[in-house]
């Protein structure tokens, strides 16, 4: 389950912002770690591409939902870590509730 190229329909990828917020609820991480944790959390069924990951992180940053800061690595280049903000926690709760509503609606429609 190194690198999931399994099916990643738009429905899944479309929720990348919420997935990243959920990941950051467990602690601050840099890009690759976030991708790996999402992959692990889905048993390797979904792992976001770098492009998807960073376009989401930029969006989240613009919304004030995550905050980047530089790590203090001394070897191999400093990493940019992302921290979830209070607004980001609210956003995660809200979009999770929204998903629950959408899910029960789709269950009746599909």
């Amino acid at each position: 389950m190194d690198h999931a190229s399994v099916l990643t329909p738009d429905l899944v990828r479309g929720n990348i912002d919420t997935m990243i917020l959920k990941t950051l609820l467990q602690g601050d991480h840099y890009g690759y770690r976030i991708a790996k944790m999402i992959a692990a959390g889905s048993d390797g069924q979904y792992e976001p591409k770098e492009a998807t990951l960073y376009s989401s992180l930029r969006r989240l940053e613009a919304n004030g939902w995550v905050e980047p800061y530089w790590g203090d690595e001394t070897q191999g280049g400093r990493r940019k870590y992302y921290k979830i903000t209070a607004a980001g926690r609210h956003a995660h709760t809200a979009s999770k509730a929204q998903w629950e509503r959408a899910k029960s609606l789709l269950d009746t429609l599909l």
């Binding site: 190194d2 690198h3 591409k49 930029r58």
Partner: peptide, 25 residues
Amino acid sequence: LLATGVEESAALDTVRKSVGNLQEI
């Protein structure tokens, strides 16, 4: 990938695929 024993060219191929569509961003 190399640490898990993946051969170098295969690892590089996986790395390349992990980038996705940069045009998107």
